[in-house]
Deep mutational scan, measured.
Amino acid sequence: CHSECLGNCSQPDDPTKCVACRNFYLDGRCVETCPPPYYHFQDWRCVNFSFCQDLHHKCKNSRRQGCHQYVIHNNKCIPECPSGYTMNSSNLLCTPCLGPCPKVCHLLEGEKTIDSVTSAQELRGCTVINGSLIINIRGGNNLAAELEANLGLIEEISGYLKIRRSYALVSLSFFRKLRLIRGETLEIGNYSFYALDNQNLRQLWDWSKHNLTITQGKLFFHYNPKLCLSEIHKMEEVSGTKGRQERNDIALKTNGDQASCENELLKFSYIRTSFDKILLRWEPYWPPDFRDLLGFMLFYKEAPYQNVTEFDGQDACGSNSWTVVDIDPPLRSNDPKSQNHPGWLMRGLKPWTQYAIFVKTLVTFSDERRTYGAKSDIIYVQTDATNPSVPLDPISVSNSSSQIILKWKPPSDPNGNITHYLVFWERQAEDSELFELDYCLKGLKLPSRTWSPPFESEDSQKHNQSEYEDSAGECCSCPKTDSQILKELEESSFRKTFEDYLHNVVFVPRKT
């Protein structure tokens, strides 16, 4: 048989008469490798580009789960590009990614509803959504962080984005990388972005840091009482949809009607710091009717980097990364020049730590249904340095008659930039024990000054392991946590139920 035959053949030295091919099969003959313009397919066939392209389009058009959109890589027609490569849609070739590779997620039936953290986790790592997304989240724990972890990498949506009755959302900033909504599939009414009845939605994105392009379709905003109209108009300008909307697409009466839409800028007039305090004062603000001013709200939190936005980490279910302080308005003076500047002394802060701070007014709604208010920009203030805590785990070892090696770990709280350490030492008198000992005694162990690591005695271990207080009263049991108490109650309830079950099964009433 021919060298490319495997198993047997019907005619000697003829690659077209093989029972099976050793390498690849091409047009009725066995070959060692697939010549151009053919590609290896499933490690035994040679196919042309049209064959591989037909497989790709067949799966793409069917949208069946589990099928493969075949691509070409290293002269092979394979189910998908290997790690580190992405497909070129024009020629199906796998090309190296520039940075992290995109991950295209194809949605069944063309859309997916995100109504819980669990459903959001199914899209973790996706960068391109081939379909439409509907966000409908009523509640949950730590929602802002969970949504950002699972949806934060999405850069492109081919269909539309719909935010509907998501009472738990305060902001859409968890879509931190969303840059493009194509609108290839539109919501009824030709809408590519749809926001309806979101009672706590206050911000779409921080438009000073976020760009969003909507290729096709219109915007729809109705019944978002805490979303200011200025935020919607800003989205029109940034996304390129200005002029597409009709009169009733953006409701003037049901958007922002319960919001404090600040239209003035508060400026800080005085800032002073110490290692654990920050004193702030800002310019006074009074609405047209000074009785509408209820006070100020001061927001602050630790910020290692200057990239904080107002609604980071917030949701309507209680999660809030900001510390909020309510401040009463100052006494009002008739003389504008003698107006008191409101302020606040922030206490209990960490030394040498940068804080993000902003302040906003708290006002009631005027009778004319106009909203007044003022808010400052987010500023960054760093507390002063102070003395560091003591170095940890000092170790001293003498390696000769004239040297001592000293080692330690950095302090747990540096409280500033540590530039150097101060080492103090003092000579001590020799131990009298060394002169009084009889060095001729056998088995004498000389006193040693070398360091030995501390260890816990058996008594201390027994005390720590004991669940009861000892007789001397030195140790006591740790208080039980809520989960331990709940577990004990469940076990007790189970024992009672099981005992009742045994009584009912074992003891049967005697027939009379």
Rank of each mutant, 00 (worst) to 15 (best):
G110R: 07
W344C: 04
Y380H: 01
T118S: 07
I405M: 01
N211Q: 13
Y194C: 15
Q203R: 11
P394K: 11
G159H: 02
I357A: 08
A168Y: 11
W352Q: 15
D315R: 10
I214P: 00
W282L: 04
T383C: 04
A316N: 10
L345D: 15
W408V: 01
G159C: 01
D289K: 03
E283R: 14
D257Q: 04
K360W: 15
K103A: 09
P225W: 04
V128Y: 13
G125L: 12
F311Y: 15
E246D: 12
I163Q: 00
G295F: 15
P284E: 15
L153D: 03
T323P: 01
N340V: 14
D326R: 02
H210A: 06
L298I: 06
K162V: 14
S239L: 11
S171L: 01
D384F: 02
L294M: 13
F175V: 05
R369H: 06
L153Q: 07
G217W: 01
E184V: 09
Q245H: 04
L186V: 05
L345T: 09
L294I: 08
S230P: 15
Y355L: 01
L279K: 15
E187C: 13
L293Q: 10
Q121E: 08
K242R: 09
D312T: 13
N200D: 07
I357S: 01
G131N: 02
D115R: 04
N307K: 04
S366L: 01
S239A: 11
D249V: 12
N141K: 12
V308H: 00
P388A: 05
A251I: 07
V324S: 08
R370S: 06
M297T: 02
H341G: 14
L153C: 12
S400W: 05
N263Q: 07
A149I: 05
A303K: 05
E262V: 05
T371D: 05
D384L: 09
A259Y: 04
N263A: 12
N130G: 04
R179V: 08
Q354E: 09
L229T: 06
L298Q: 00
R202L: 05
Y380S: 02
N150F: 14
S208V: 07
L392C: 09
F221L: 10
I278R: 00
L153V: 13
